[in-house]
Design a protein around this nucleic acid. Structure first.
Lengths: 238, 238
DNA sequence: CGAGGGTTTGAAGTGCATCAAATAGTGTGG
DNA sequence: CCACACTATTTGATGCACTTCAAACCCTCG
């Protein structure tokens, strides 16, 4: 069981330079659990003791505004490490995390990671790298919000879901979670999402059946979606 | 001259744990120059050899979209270090930088910084800290864009301009650069900015004369502006 | 004084939000 | 396997916020 965790960790960029002993120590203090839709991992403002690796499923990061709205920070795809960057701001989570699709998650104590980073320069460098990537992705997110319209944002999102390997031929994409949630993720209302998807179909000729989207070619989508973006296709956001 | 630079560097959090020799080495290879409005520091995609410290003035970071628009990443206030995080993504700048208000800027070679970070764990930690702060600020930026309306975004921006020290009594704020640019920074058109500012005046009772804004009290502004935000006032964005 | 950019104002259009209601889809217990 | 309850999604109608285009105004600076 812990060997599964060790293997998982060793495969991550962040743990490339983590000595075996630390990985093992981390693994023995970790837990791999299954979570159902709707379960809360932690709440904004809570003492941060753990960081997480999302092996399977999707997790929503969010905050609540004073007037009761929900601000969605991100919706994490599988194979994402999260909560690890908390270390250097406050000792509390600055957002809440909720499972939105049946998930398997490894929960690990921040303390051990923290100690390793403090004494191991190479680990610090790895973390720097992953933060840089994340930062760039966030810059793009801002750009998308200000420059793309609703149908373009959806198209851009679809393009980023596509397996990087296939750049040719027809493509099938499955929406990874609720359309309502997807709408929120893209900063629009569910109704707008629905109409914008129809609009995207008209503009690009994609086909939509439930949560399945089919496109005859990438260029069909990217030509329309990436027009208002500073990085053409393929999008440079992670 | 180089001693000025050394002193400036030593005062920055990033260089707190930088050995004196490295700071001096950095300083001898650095240049403090004056720049006029409109001057370009570097362009998106260019080989990145330098990072910068903005001592005075304001600098715009931006990219161009395929259809010719300009995406504003940020407009940096004085006393900001920038271009230093490039190190771990590509070897090229991923945005362009232009001086928008008469500036004094220290230009320093990335290479020396890079070497120091690689061998000095404490430096890496300092950089981690500053990146974490920046990341949080960016999360807030996204939240503001999706949840606040135009007048609220302006109000929020004004609040962040205020000297942290004065939390009581009447306040005078000077807009730091063009209203047109400010509009772009806040993701709106100049016309919208103009109208939104009027709206903000009606809602909060602030007074506006040219580029000077006067408010009788902070709460007057914050009550209206921070309603749609997850962190009340004072705003947790850096 | 006049040219030119920044800023404001007006009128009209567009995109998205909102409210309301219909429809499709899903899981439940019978 | 069906009927029901409940949720997700779509559709329609309407309103508001922001944009766009056009023109006026204002301010600064040669």
């Amino acid at each position: 069981m812990t060997t599964v965790i060790v293997d998982t960790l060793k495969a991550l960029p962040l743990f490339q330079h983590c000595p075996k002993e630390t990985c093992e120590q981390l693994a023995t203090h970790s837990h791999l659990d299954s979570y159902k839709k709707g379960q809360i991992l932690f709440l904004n403002g809570e003492q941060a003791h753990n960081f997480f690796f999302l092996q399977k499923g999707w997790v929503k990061l969010f905050r609540e505004t004073l007037d009761g709205d929900q601000a969605i920070i991100d919706i994490l795809p599988p194979h994402t490490l999260f909560g690890e960057a908390i270390l250097y701001e406050s000792k509390t989570y600055n957002y809440s995390a909720e499972v939105v699709e049946e998930a398997q998650i490894i929960r690990m104590p921040l303390k051990i990671l923290h100690q390793e980073i403090e004494k191991n320069g190479l680990m610090a460098l790895s973390l720097l790298k992953s933060m840089t990537r994340r930062q760039h992705a966030q810059e793009m997110e801002i750009e998308h919000l200000t420059l793309q319209n609703a149908p373009q944002r959806i198209g851009c999102f679809l393009l980023r879901l596509i397996d990087q390997k296939q750049t040719e031929g027809p493509i099938i994409i499955h929406l990874p979670y609720d359309k309502t949630l997807l709408a929120a993720r893209l900063g629009m209302q569910p109704e707008t999402f629905s109409r914008a998807l129809t609009r995207l179909r008209e503009e690009t000729g994609i086909e939509i059946k439930g949560s399945t989207v089919m496109a005859q070619s990438l260029s069909q989508l990217s030509h329309y979606s990436c027009a208002a973006c500073s990085s053409g296709f393929p999008c440079s956001c992670a």
